[in-house]
Simulated scan of single mutants.
Amino acid sequence: MSEPVTRSEKLELAVELLAHLEREELALPEAMDRIETVTTDPTLTREILDTAEKRGVIDREDARLRIRRGGTHVEYGSQVVAREGDFECRRCGAGITTGHFVRLEAGELGPFGSSCVRKVTGRDAE
């Protein structure tokens, strides 16, 4: 899989990422942290949140999101793959030699370090 290039590919990937978070609720800044692994464009970020809400993926109230995922989450055995190489973590910018990539239907997201991939998927709290 390749990195999303078009606006619509980024939108789909970010909405799918939100749908697969393991946490049921998170603050807007935490959601932004995840979305920024796909895009830092503020207009696209708003569109991602609006689309996720329209599709029933999230509910927004004040500065919090509730994930309405219906039991789906990222499967670490099959959807998170590790590759060796010289990478820069997409979330924190650290240099890493093992990159973790999240495979979703809309595309692949990464690389992430081992702790950042857990934060991006919602497995670890901030």
Rank of each mutant, 00 (worst) to 15 (best):
S8D: 14
E9F: 02
L11R: 13
A14C: 13
L18F: 04
A19M: 11
L21T: 04
E22G: 14
E22S: 15
R23K: 11
E25C: 13
L28F: 03
L28T: 03
T37W: 00
T39N: 08
T40W: 10
L44D: 09
T45Y: 03
T45M: 09
L49Y: 10
A52Q: 10
A52D: 12
V57Y: 01
D59R: 15
A63V: 11
R64G: 05
L65I: 10
R66P: 04
R69E: 00
G70A: 13
G71L: 10
S78I: 10
Q79C: 05
V80R: 07
V81M: 11
A82P: 07
R83S: 11
G85P: 14
G85M: 07
G85E: 11
G85F: 10
E88Q: 10
I96G: 00
I96A: 03
T97S: 12
G99T: 05
G99R: 00
F101K: 09
V102L: 02
V102W: 02
V102A: 07
R103S: 15
R103C: 10
L104E: 02
A106F: 00
L109M: 06
L109A: 03
G110C: 03
F112S: 03
F112T: 00
G113P: 15
S114V: 14
C116E: 14
V117H: 01
V117T: 02
K119G: 05
